[in-house]
């Protein structure tokens, strides 16, 4: 009996130690769907011997819910600016001393020490862009230069509109259209937002943030909430007959940073990854693939998205970045959304 115990203990310790060893080569990346070039993942694994497990999300809210539940095991995640602020506030992020990382030197000065991470301890800004809407030009000939067409659709668009499935970017868009401040705490203002969205709902085919590309490219819907770079990618790579609208009321701005969750078990690998992704060559490859503007330096001579062929990411419309709302403003946002989708 004792002999067996000894052997099983030995087996256990071996399996634990090898498990720990394997752990060191692991990196769990949780990022926006289809956002990282698979070539980069492969190169990173080859160069560093670190094995990446990739998982993806399509809204900041889900990312926050995952991290908040405490059951996640991610090492690098890519929240937008206002969620970086919330996550720092909620103690969900690891202090990685970002300002002293190699990656930080690559970051464009205009994105350093911003309000969401004033002393740059937690986050490395990575990509930025806008949220707006895309129209299918085969099915829709009307104008696309105002949020009016999207929120109060007529003609071919009525009944064939698709809207993001979470309020994070659609409520700011409605606020832009109505001339209301982001994160307002005024109930009367939010009631107007609710009424606008409620009226729009009659013309909405689907609320979804997944599979946007196929839905708008195929013409299944004629207008779809979308992000600038994703829309451009579908237009350039798949020749989709689509156009990213430039609403005169403004576009909703976002900036995704690389951060490390507090309970990450491979934070050294995470830092290696963040530094590696921010190297000029890799950032350029990522820029060409993801098609969103890069917050870290890229090699302009190798960039394929230039100002003259990329109206999506060089918008003429003005951009207003979303903010982190106060709890009472957030409650109003949640209220609008719950009532809307009841």
């Amino acid at each position: 009996m004792k002999y067996i115990t000894k052997i099983s203990l030995l087996a256990l310790s071996i399996s634990l130690s090898t498990g720990a060893k394997a752990e060191n080569n692991q990196l769990n990346v949780y990022t926006w769907a289809e956002s990282i070039d698979p070539v980069l993942i492969e190169n990173f694994q080859k160069e560093t011997g670190i094995e990446i497990t990739l998982d993806s999300y399509t809204s900041n809210e889900y990312l926050l819910a995952k991290l908040k539940s405490g059951s996640s095991d991610y090492d690098v995640v890519f929240p937008s600016q206002h969620f970086v602020k919330i996550m720092i506030q909620e103690g969900l992020l690891k202090n990685i001393d970002a300002k002293n990382m190699a990656a930080f030197k690559q970051v464009d000065d205009k994105w350093k020490n911003k309000w969401w991470d004033k002393s740059s301890e937690y986050s490395i800004p990575f990509v930025y862009g806008t949220a707006g809407y895309t129209v299918n030009r085969d099915k829709y000939e009307g104008p696309a230069n105002s949020w009016k067409e999207f929120f109060e659709p007529t003609g071919a668009a009525a009944g064939n509109i698709a809207v993001f499935s979470t309020p994070d970017e659609i409520i700011p868009a409605a606020q832009l259209y109505l001339g209301i401040d982001f994160c307002t705490e005024k109930r009367t203002d939010m009631k107007k937002v609710y009424q606008l969205l409620k009226k729009q709902k009659e013309y909405v085919a689907v609320y979804s943030s997944d599979n946007i590309s196929s839905r708008i490219s195929s013409g299944e819907v004629v207008m779809h909430n979308w992000w600038d770079g994703d829309s451009m990618r579908a237009r350039k790579n798949n020749n989709a007959p689509i156009e990213y609208a430039q609403p005169k009321e403004g576009l909703v701005g976002w900036l995704d940073s690389m951060v490390v969750p507090k309970n990450s078990r491979n934070s050294d690998n995470a830092k290696t990854f963040i530094n590696w992704m921010s190297e000029k060559d890799n950032a350029t490859i990522e820029y060409n693939y993801y098609a969103h503007s890069s917050a870290v330096a890229i090699d302009e001579s190798k960039a394929i998205h230039k100002k003259e062929n990329s109206p999506e990411i060089f918008p003429t419309a003005f951009i207003k970045f979303t903010r982190a709302c106060s709890p009472s403003a957030q409650k109003l946002v949640d209220k609008v959304w719950t009532q809307l989708l009841q």
Binding site: K201, V206, Y207
Partner: peptide, 16 residues
Amino acid sequence: GKTMMLGNLIQNQFGV
């Protein structure tokens, strides 16, 4: 995603 059922409502409360 336009009309909710109880399952979606619950999922929403823990998510969005």
